[in-house]
Amino acid sequence: MIDLATFANPARFSRIAGRVFPWAVGATAVLMAAGLYFALFASPPDYQQGESVRIMYVHVPAAWMALSSYTLLAVASAVALVWRHLLADVVARAMAPIGACFTFLCLVTGSLWGKPMWGTFWVWDARLTSVLVLFFLYLGYLALQNAFDDPARGLRASAILALVGFVNVPIIKFSVDWWNTLHQPASIKLGGPAIDASMLVPLILMTLAFEAYFVTVLLLRMRTELVRGKLRSARLRAAEADEYLPNIGKPA
C-alpha cells in the first residue's frame, strides 16, 4: 500500500513547524515594533525628501522580499520537479501569495511615495516598472496554479512556469533598466545608493521584521495546506467507499 502522501516527513515538518512557530511570531512582533519605532521616530527626515522618506522603510524591504520570494519559489519549484518532493510543492504553493502580497505592497508604497516626490502616483521608473512586471509574473503563476481541476497538475505546471519566469527576471530587469535610461531618467530615487547610517538601522530592522513575518505566515500557510490535503483525501476516500458499495458483494 503506498501512502497517498509519500509523505512520512510532513509529520516531522509539522512537529518542527510547531516548535518554530511561536518564536517566529515573537521575532516578528519585536522586530516590527523596534523597526517601526526607528523608522517613524528615531530617524531623521531626509534633507531632500522630508518625512516622506519614511515610506522607504516599508518599500525597500518589500521589494527585497518580493524578489527573494520569487527566487525561493523557483528553488522550491526546481526541487518539486526534479525530486517530486511533496514538501517543496507545499512550500511553493504556500509562499506564492505571500510573495505576490509583498510585491503589491512595494508597488503601492512606491506609488504613494511618488505623489509628493514626482507629483504623480505613477512614474515609469526603472525599478518600479521591474517590480510591476514581477507582480505580473506572480499573477500568472497563481492563475496557472489554480486553473486546473486537479491541484497536482496545477502545481507542476506552475513549477515549470516559475523556472521559466526565474530565467527571465534578470533579462526583463536588464531590458527595463536599459529602456529607462533611453527615456528620461527619474531624478530622485527611492532608497538611492547613498544611505546614511541613521537610516540604515530602521531599514535593516524592518527587513528582518519582514523576514520573520514571512517565515511566520509561510509556516501557517504550509500547515494549512497540509491539513487541506488531508481533508481532501479523506473526502475522496469517503466518496470512493460510497461509490464502490454496490460492488462489495460480488465475487472478486
Binding site: 512586471v133 505580473f136 509574473l137 499573477l139 500568472g140 492563475a143 496557472l144 486553473a147 486546473f148 481541476d149 505546471a157 512556469l161 521559466v164 519566469g165 527571465n168 533579462i171 526583463i172 536588464f174 531590458s175 527595463v176
Partner: peptide
Amino acid sequence: ARRGGALTSLLVLPLFIP
C-alpha cells in the same frame, strides 16, 4: 486549463517585454 486562451496571455505577455 479552464479559460486556457486568456491564461496563455497572462503567462506570456510579461515574458514578451524584452
